[in-house]
Amino acid sequence: MKLKSKHLLGLEGMSRKEINLILDTAETFKEILSRPIRVVPTLRGVTVVNLFYEPSTRTRISFELAEKRLSAEVVNFSAAISSSRKGETLKDTVRNIEAMKTDMVVVRHQASGVPYFLTQCLDSSIINAGDGAHEHPTQGLLDLFTIREKYKNVKGLKVVIVGDIKYSRVARSDMWGLSIMGADVSLCGPSTLLPVEIDKMGVKVYSDLNKALVGADVVIVLRIQLERQKGGLLPSLREYTNKFGITKDRLKRLNENFTIMHPGPINRGVEITPEVADGPHSVILDQVTNGVAIRMAVLYLLSGGEGKVE
C-alpha cells in the first residue's frame, strides 16, 4: 500500500484506503511519543524545509517537532525574515532553496494553490501546511485521527462544523476527510460566511445552530476572526457569539457521548465559552498531540525515495 502522490496537497480526491494508511501509521508514531527517547532515526539525512509565508505558531512547531522526532534536518524559513520582502518571486525563492539540496518542503501560504504551484517548479515532496482558504490536510487528518481514536470508527458519526466556513481551509479539509470516511457532515455559520454552492460538497448546511446540533456526536468549532467584522460580513463579534457561540446550554442538544474540537487558536468567550473548551468533552489538547503523530506519519510515508522496488 502506497499513497498515490508524493505530495500532500489536500484531502480532496484521496481514497479511504489512503487516509486509513496515514491514520494507522500515525498510531504507531503516537506510541513513539510515549517512549523515553521520542526520536527515531528514520529520516536521518533528509532535509525538510518549513516554508511559512503566513504567521503560524502551532502548525509550524508541530511540523518541526514531527521532523525532529524523525531525525530529519530542519530548516525554517519564514516570510518575515526572508527575501520575499525584497521583491523576490515565490518561484525564485523556492528554487533557490531547492538548489541548497533539500528533500521535502512544508509550505504555508496565504494564497490558495501555492503548494500545487511548488510541485510544478520543484522536485521535492510538497506538504501543504495550509494554503489560503483551500486546504489544511494535516489538520483534517489529525481531526479524523482524534475522532477515530475516540469512536473507533468515523463512519456514520454526525459531525457539525461551526463558524467561518467561507475563509476556513480547516473546514474544507475536514469536510473532504470526514465525507470520504463516511461521516455525516453538517456546516453551520452566518449566511455571509457560508461560501456559495457549498451544499454541492455533499454536506448539510444550517444557519440555525440549535437545529444543526441536534443529535450530533462531534462539534468542530472554528475560529472567528475580527477581520470578518471589518469586512462587513458580520455586524459584530458580540452578535456572532450570541447566535453561534458554543455554550454549555447549547450542548444539551448533542448526543450523550459528544466531543468538542477546535483547531486553535481559540478565542475564548467568542466562538466557545471557556467552560466548554476546557470541559470533559473537549479533546482540543489531544488534537495538538495527535497533530505531531499525524505529521510524522505523513512525512514518513512521503519520504520514500524513487529508487528501486524491493
Binding site: S112, G113, G132, A133, H134, P195, V196, E197, K200, M201
Partner: peptide, 10 residues
C-alpha cells in the same frame, strides 16, 4: 464565484 471557487477557497 461558484462551486469551484468554494472548493479552492479562492
Amino acid at each position: 464565484e461558484g462551486f469551484v471557487s468554494t472548493t479552492l477557497g479562492m
